[in-house]
Amino acid sequence: MIQTLKYWLGINLNCKEAHQFLTDYVENALDEDLKWRFEQHMRLCRNCRVYLAQYKAVIALLHDTAPPKPQPELVAHTLSFLKNELNKPTS
Protein backbone atom coordinates (compact mmCIF):
# COMPACT_ATOMS: atom_id res chain seq x y z
CA MET A 1 0.00 0.00 0.00
CA ILE A 2 2.75 2.44 1.03
CA GLN A 3 4.86 1.34 -1.92
CA THR A 4 1.92 1.97 -4.29
CA LEU A 5 1.33 5.36 -2.75
CA LYS A 6 5.03 6.20 -3.01
CA TYR A 7 4.99 5.08 -6.63
CA TRP A 8 2.06 7.34 -7.52
CA LEU A 9 3.55 10.26 -5.67
CA GLY A 10 6.84 9.65 -7.43
CA ILE A 11 8.73 9.44 -4.15
CA ASN A 12 9.97 5.90 -4.69
CA LEU A 13 12.82 7.53 -6.59
CA ASN A 14 15.18 9.49 -4.35
CA CYS A 15 17.47 12.33 -5.49
CA LYS A 16 20.46 10.06 -5.98
CA GLU A 17 18.48 7.60 -8.11
CA ALA A 18 16.85 10.38 -10.12
CA HIS A 19 20.28 11.87 -10.68
CA GLN A 20 21.54 8.61 -12.14
CA PHE A 21 18.87 8.85 -14.83
CA LEU A 22 19.66 12.43 -15.90
CA THR A 23 21.59 11.47 -19.01
CA ASP A 24 19.09 8.81 -20.02
CA TYR A 25 16.33 11.38 -19.54
CA VAL A 26 17.90 14.11 -21.66
CA GLU A 27 18.92 11.51 -24.24
CA ASN A 28 15.31 10.29 -24.31
CA ALA A 29 16.44 6.79 -23.41
CA LEU A 30 14.14 6.13 -20.43
CA ASP A 31 11.22 3.76 -20.73
CA GLU A 32 7.78 5.29 -20.14
CA ASP A 33 7.45 4.07 -16.56
CA LEU A 34 10.84 5.32 -15.47
CA LYS A 35 10.35 8.57 -17.34
CA TRP A 36 7.10 9.14 -15.45
CA ARG A 37 8.76 8.40 -12.10
CA PHE A 38 11.68 10.68 -12.99
CA GLU A 39 9.39 13.54 -13.99
CA GLN A 40 7.26 13.00 -10.90
CA HIS A 41 10.37 13.31 -8.74
CA MET A 42 11.29 16.51 -10.57
CA ARG A 43 7.82 17.95 -9.93
CA LEU A 44 8.21 17.34 -6.22
CA CYS A 45 11.90 18.17 -5.71
CA ARG A 46 12.92 21.76 -6.34
CA ASN A 47 16.63 21.05 -5.80
CA CYS A 48 16.68 18.36 -8.50
CA ARG A 49 14.69 20.64 -10.80
CA VAL A 50 17.38 23.27 -10.43
CA TYR A 51 20.05 20.70 -11.20
CA LEU A 52 18.22 19.40 -14.27
CA ALA A 53 17.83 22.93 -15.64
CA GLN A 54 21.54 23.60 -15.16
CA TYR A 55 22.49 20.26 -16.67
CA LYS A 56 20.41 21.04 -19.75
CA ALA A 57 21.87 24.56 -19.90
CA VAL A 58 25.40 23.14 -20.06
CA ILE A 59 24.39 20.85 -22.95
CA ALA A 60 22.74 23.79 -24.73
CA LEU A 61 25.93 25.80 -24.29
CA LEU A 62 27.97 22.93 -25.72
CA HIS A 63 25.62 22.75 -28.72
CA ASP A 64 26.05 26.47 -29.18
CA THR A 65 29.74 26.33 -29.97
CA ALA A 66 30.70 27.13 -33.54
CA PRO A 67 32.15 24.13 -35.40
CA PRO A 68 35.72 24.51 -36.59
CA LYS A 69 35.92 24.85 -40.35
CA PRO A 70 38.74 23.56 -42.54
CA GLN A 71 40.73 25.98 -44.64
CA PRO A 72 39.38 25.97 -48.21
CA GLU A 73 42.69 24.72 -49.60
CA LEU A 74 42.76 21.65 -47.35
CA VAL A 75 40.96 19.43 -49.87
CA ALA A 76 43.42 20.29 -52.66
CA HIS A 77 46.39 19.84 -50.30
CA THR A 78 45.04 16.49 -49.14
CA LEU A 79 44.50 15.23 -52.69
CA SER A 80 48.03 16.22 -53.67
CA PHE A 81 49.43 14.65 -50.46
CA LEU A 82 47.59 11.39 -51.15
CA LYS A 83 48.76 11.29 -54.74
CA ASN A 84 52.39 11.66 -53.62
CA GLU A 85 52.15 9.16 -50.78
CA LEU A 86 50.22 6.51 -52.70
CA ASN A 87 52.63 6.67 -55.61
CA LYS A 88 55.63 6.09 -53.37
CA PRO A 89 57.04 2.58 -53.76
CA THR A 90 56.11 0.44 -50.74
CA SER A 91 59.08 -0.82 -48.77
Binding site: C15, K16, E17, H19, N47, C48, V50, Y51, Q54
Partner: peptide, 10 residues
Protein backbone atom coordinates in the same frame (compact mmCIF):
# COMPACT_ATOMS: atom_id res chain seq x y z
CA UNK B 1 18.93 8.19 2.12
CA UNK B 2 19.90 9.37 -1.34
CA UNK B 3 19.04 13.03 -0.75
CA UNK B 4 21.28 15.77 -2.09
CA UNK B 5 23.62 16.94 0.67
CA UNK B 6 23.60 20.58 -0.35
CA UNK B 7 21.21 22.87 -2.16
CA UNK B 8 22.39 23.60 -5.65
CA UNK B 9 23.24 27.26 -6.22
CA UNK B 10 20.73 29.13 -8.34
Amino acid sequence: QGHAIAEYPL
